[in-house]
Amino acid sequence: MILSTLQIVLLFVVAAIAGMGSVLDSFQTHRPLIACTLVGLVLGDLTTGVILGGTLELIALGWMNIGAAQSPDSALASIISAILVIIGNQSIATGIAIALPVAAAGQVLTVVARTVTVMFQHAADKYAENCNFRAIDLCHISALIIQALRVAVPVLLISLFVSPAGVQNLLALIPAFITTGLKVASGFIVVVGYAMVINMMGAKYLLPFFFLGFVIAGFTTFNLVAFGVLGLFAAIVYVQLNPKFQINPIVATSDSNTTDRFDDELDD
């Protein structure tokens, strides 16, 4: 499959949308589930795009930017992986093997881009001196264009030079034991994301609910919707019964003291 000019243009647009999503973290267009699906749509193989997106999404479930800390880059990883898998007619497992190194490279590009945008911040300071509202707006939007190009330019280069034979030859260079090992590892690489979520959650005294979910899942075949409903009930009952949230101030103070001490012990 050789890409048409229209497809290359559309891939550039999709990559730009994912790049903007990656910094905005608003519409989630940088998540594998969305980005891979859009690439599949452009390349005429929606099903592969959706399945690859779902697979990578599970691996990246807990990847998040907290404050100034950057996570691996799902935008560039999803798009390049989806292009190579669909054009080179590769397996989903190969897609994972492609995505992870690209996510690491993308993380470096993200840090560079977010350092470059300091320039726009300083330009805006100058425009504030003479109340140039339009120019301040432009500074803000221009920084977004940098972030779009961060993903779109590498993707453009790949889609200009990619060919089915090229992808297959390149991937054939990887020895079989590495491909098998990567497939095995992809089964448990998800835990990095789970661990990121657990560490980010502040209230460690709520960890029993984590273990409760774990045990129930181990011995039942409930689906995710059931777990969502059960978790919601657990949350409502906990908040209703918790003395910390009762109106009576005497009970509230005495109890919050004891739980604080209990937390301190857990933290040690």
Binding site: I198, F214, F227
Partner: peptide
């Protein structure tokens, strides 16, 4: 304590589902 209630409730839901995901979607053999 409205904000704290919402945060604690959401954290419980998040922890609970995360526990289920660890069990269901981690494949080690």
């Amino acid at each position: 304590n409205k904000l704290q209630k919402i945060t604690e409730g959401a954290s419980i839901l998040g922890f609970f589902v995360m526990g289920a995901l660890v069990s269901k979607w981690t494949v080690i053999n």
